[in-house]
Each structure stands twice: as structure tokens, then as C-alpha cells.
Design a protein around this nucleic acid. Sequence first.
DNA 1: AGCGGAAATT
DNA 2: AATTTCCGCT
Length: 143
Amino acid sequence: SCSSPPGHFPSPCWSRTVLFPDWAYKPAWSPGSRQVQLWHFLLELLGRGEGGAIGWGGEWGEFVIRDPEKLARLWGERKGKPHMNYDKLSRALRYYYNKRILHKTKGKRFTYRFNFSKLILVNYPGYPAPLFHQVTSMLSHFS
DNA sequence: AGCGGAAATT
DNA sequence: AATTTCCGCT
């Protein structure tokens, strides 16, 4: 159940079982697909925990972008935007401030923080139905 | 580096 | 609506 069919985006097992609905992993041309959002993508990469372009920081929900231009390139690949860069990606992150999805950790370079309570309870697709315990297990993963 | 307005794009 | 693009300002 953790494999992805050919032509589909890779879906890491951890993310697939705990975090995202199926449509987040379908390519744009696939029936029933919806556009993946930036915060889905960030959590997907963070869930891999490989020490790649981004990783978790010290505080609860905090993450550090280790390689901003690499992250932008990966995001651009996912969205089919070959000219994506960190300047533009970071503007999208700043639009999350008013939505209460993210805020900036001031004084720490390339460091942001998820507002998990707002993110999960308000923005998670499918809320409030049967995903609650799955979300809870996701949160315990970070502590 | 980081912010946020403005307009364009999907 | 959620970015993407562009850019002047701090």
C-alpha cells in the first residue's frame, strides 16, 4: 500500500499512511486529482527525514531550509514551474502567515514554524471525519 | 535575508 | 483560492 503506480509521484510510506489524501499524490492529469499545496509538499519532505533540502528544527513544528534553491527546484518540479526559485517560494510561505499555517522564527535564518493546531484542524482535507487519530499519530511522530 | 503590495496565472 | 511573478523597501 506504500508503492506508487508508474507515472505517479513518489509517495513515501510514512506520508501516505499518516498524512495525505490520495489526490495529493496524483499527477495533474489524473482523474480526481487536485493541485498539491506547498505545505503538503513541505510536510512530505520533512516526513522523509533524510537530512535533505529541509529538516526539523529545535522547537515544536519548527523547520530549517538547509538548501533554499534546491527546495525551490524540487517544488518547481512538482508544480511544473521550471523557473521557481527561493525568492518566489518564500513569498508563498509569507502568504501562509495570515492564514496561520506558518510563521517565521525571527533571527534564525531560513527557519519557519508550522502552526499545527491551525494547520491540521482547519486546513487538513477531509476534516473532521475519520482522520483525527491519524493526525494525532502524526503529531506524536514529532515529539 | 526577509517583508508585503500589486498584478498575473492556474 | 493558492500560488507565481515581479519588485521596492528595510
